[in-house]
């Protein structure tokens, strides 16, 4: 289980504003949780806290029953993979080399990549439909293609927990859906737990087991999509009148904004 216990956090340069205010949430194995909320509500910060990249001022994060603060970076990287909007890579690294860096926590600090590491890297690229880029330079790929390579790198880490910060923001519709299907399948088959930050309410409604709604650093609603995604809650959070009906096949909530507003 990945447990966030009563986390509070503020940036040192801005102590007046509580970025995360007493947030608790548990993610179980095999569960896909979507984290939604307006800009600046603290979604990405919460993800960084869960990954141990930021230290909360109070509260703690437990991963597989161990406090994140007590683990080495290597131990954390073997359990958790985080995908964030990437850096611009300024060196001629290939996509395959980029994905191979995901193996770092599993291999000795000195040496070359084993056949097994290569097989894992290629398999990860294949799963995100990016194997055709393996030999291309990472800085020559489009933003959407790079996102698939970044997800592949996270898969190459073979984590128990996936933390994804807008993994589909630049992908085309087909790849948005295939990436989330992949995460869904991994949750079902390999019992991976995933926490996904997204702005796409409809994708979240379709794929998530649970939805967490964050506003001004506070968790305002949490539960299955059908319970949480209601007109009143969403209209309040996003300050926009929202209409909800159902997906014709899955029966999950489908959201629109009011056309006359």
């Amino acid at each position: 289980m990945l447990e966030l216990r009563n986390l509070s956090f503020h940036y040192t340069r801005d102590p007046a504003r509580q970025t995360i205010d007493r947030v608790s949430l548990d993610i179980h194995q095999g569960e896909l949780v979507a984290l939604l909320g307006p800009n600046g509500s603290g979604k990405s910060t919460l993800l960084q806290l869960a990954a141990g990249a930021l230290r909360p001022q109070s509260g703690e994060v437990l991963v597989n029953q161990q406090p994140v603060a007590s683990l080495t970076r290597r131990e954390i990287a073997r359990m958790m993979a985080i995908v964030t909007p990437g850096y611009e890579v300024r060196f001629p690294l290939t996509a395959l080399e980029y994905v191979l860096t995901g193996r770092y926590a599993h291999v000795p600090a000195v040496g070359f990549d084993s056949q097994q590491d290569l097989a894992i890297a290629r398999q990860s690229l294949r799963e995100t439909d990016a194997l055709q880029f393996a030999e291309r330079r990472i800085n020559q790929l489009s933003a959407g293609e790079r996102q698939r390579v970044s997800l592949a790198r996270a898969l190459a880490q073979q984590p128990d927990w996936l933390l994804l910060d807008e993994p589909t923001a630049n992908a085309d519709l087909a790849h948005q859906i295939s990436m989330l299907r992949l995460v869904r399948e991994m949750a079902n088959r390999q019992r991976i737990g995933a926490l996904i930050v997204t702005h796409d309410l409809n994708l979240a409604a379709q794929f998530a087991d649970r939805i967490m709604l964050l506003k001004e650093g506070r968790l305002v609603a949490s539960g299955p999509p059908g319970e949480v995604l209601t007109t009143s809650v969403l209209s309040d959070i996003f300050n926009l009148p929202i209409l909800i009906d159902q997906h014709p096949q899955s029966g999950r909530p489908r959201l629109f904004w009011e056309s006359n507003s």
Partner: peptide, 8 residues
């Protein structure tokens, strides 16, 4: 930031 998340 990536290096940190990947175990360094």
């Amino acid at each position: 930031r990536d290096a940190f998340a990947l175990g360094i």
